[in-house]
């Protein structure tokens, strides 16, 4: 289910494989970056940095230690967070009021996608506010269980089970 063949070719500096992996992952990586930087122009700059890192550091990915998606996700989150923490970002950003990814799934944000995304949007709407916060911190911001527990003021032991229940709500949107 992950394109191991392309990944191996990427690790051998195959530009065509890189271009194909870009096609496979760039859209959702841009989504991840958006939830952190909240500005499309900045998100695209960050994404370019991310994929340059993917190209340069491809050898460090080890299939037996994790998913390629997770590896990409880590690079994307770290790059985006670095950007958010930079001085330049703090001076230019206008979207401080956006708190979670749910903002980007409001009905009026992207009319082009409205028809395709009815399924998952509908299920995001069903999510409790706590679920949105959990997914925001764990998935999009890469918080540890401990950081999440402290940030949301919930018991450490309930973080992973609550998060699973939240994701299961979304998964029914795929199964339908």
């Amino acid at each position: 289910m992950q394109p191991d063949f392309l990944i191996e070719r990427l690790q051998n500096k195959d530009e065509k494989a890189f271009a194909k992996l870009y096609d496979l992952y760039s859209e959702n990586i841009l989504g991840v970056i958006m939830t952190i930087v909240k500005d499309q122009n900045i998100a695209e700059e960050v994404m370019q940095d991310v994929f340059v890192k993917v190209w340069n550091k491809a050898q460090t990915y080890n299939k037996s230690k994790g998913r390629f998606f997770t590896w990409l996700l880590n690079i994307a989150r770290n790059s985006a967070i670095d950007r958010v923490r930079s001085k330049a970002f703090k001076n230019t950003s206008k979207n401080h009021d956006i708190e979670t990814f749910a903002f980007f799934l409001q009905d009026d944000t992207d009319l082009d996608k409205a028809s395709e995304s009815i399924g998952i949007k509908k299920f995001v709407k069903k999510l409790k506010p706590m679920c949105i916060k959990l997914i925001q911190l764990l998935y999009f911001q890469g918080f540890s269980q401990k950081e999440t527990s402290e940030s949301l003021d919930i018991p450490l032991g309930t973080v992973k089970s609550r998060n699973r229940a939240c994701l299961n709500t979304l998964r029914t949107s795929l199964e339908d």
């Binding site: 939830t35 998606f69 995304s117």
Partner: peptide, 12 residues
Amino acid sequence: LILMELSTEISP
């Protein structure tokens, strides 16, 4: 798969 779906939806 569901995570990729979610972030793809968010992506501009």
